[in-house]
């Protein structure tokens, strides 16, 4: 049991448990599961600027989401400090070979240190991955009206047509990066 807890969790355990968050949140709190609106609430709470988009009572509609994402951060701490999380990732040998062909050499953590370290932040590839990547995730999620949780999980689970469109967009973008941008970057 202890070993099972400490090794990485297979999809058929983690996936259904993640799915249960949607009804559980609804039953306990009446809130619809989603993460990227936390970015909107964080802007509304700190630097709303002149945008109509950020003029609303963020405490009433967004505080729950901000607490939820603080929890996610704490969960990351618990998973690594107490539950043996943090890598190496058990990726397929085909993926490893592809990434090695692109020049990545270090596979012992959750991210390639060539891109995701403080020293890489000032290199071109690191800056693009972290700063441009982060910007596009925030901008795109808000433009699309949700991210993987709100669209791909809550939206698809409730058979919403806009969510299917968004998920198609996610994959078009992801494939463009994987086959177009990354080979240029690495």
């Amino acid at each position: 049991m202890g070993d099972l807890l400490l090794s990485s969790w297979p999809w058929y355990i983690a996936g259904p448990l993640i799915g249960l968050f949607v009804p559980l949140l609804l039953l306990l709190t009446g809130k619809a599961f989603g993460v990227s609106s936390s970015l909107k609430h964080a802007c509304a709470a700190t630097v709303p600027g002149r945008a109509e988009y950020f003029r609303y009572d963020w405490k009433a509609s967004g505080l729950w989401n901000l607490l939820f994402v603080v929890g996610i951060l704490l969960g990351g701490v618990v998973a690594v400090q107490l539950l043996g999380g943090g890598g190496p990732t058990g990726i397929s040998s085909a993926t490893k070979a592809d990434l090695q062909a692109l020049g990545l050499t270090e596979f012992s953590g959750l991210v390639p240190p060539e891109l995701f370290s403080w020293s890489s932040l000032t290199t071109g590839p690191g800056f693009v991955a972290i700063v441009l990547g982060g910007f596009l995730v925030g901008f795109g999620a808000r433009y699309a009206g949700g991210c993987t949780s709100g669209h791909a999980i809550t939206g698809l689970a409730t058979l919403q047509w806009p969510s299917l469109l968004a998920v198609v967009g996610f994959f078009i973008g992801g494939l463009l990066t994987t086959y177009g941008l990354l080979p240029l970057l690495l």
């Binding site: 999620a141 009206g145 993987t148 969510s163 968004a166 973008g173 992801g174």
Partner: peptide, 16 residues
């Protein structure tokens, strides 16, 4: 917005 925002999100998801 779902398609354009989705593609922007996907580009970022792939990078980050």
């Amino acid at each position: 917005n779902q398609i354009a925002g989705g593609i922007a999100f996907g580009l970022g998801w792939g990078l980050l």
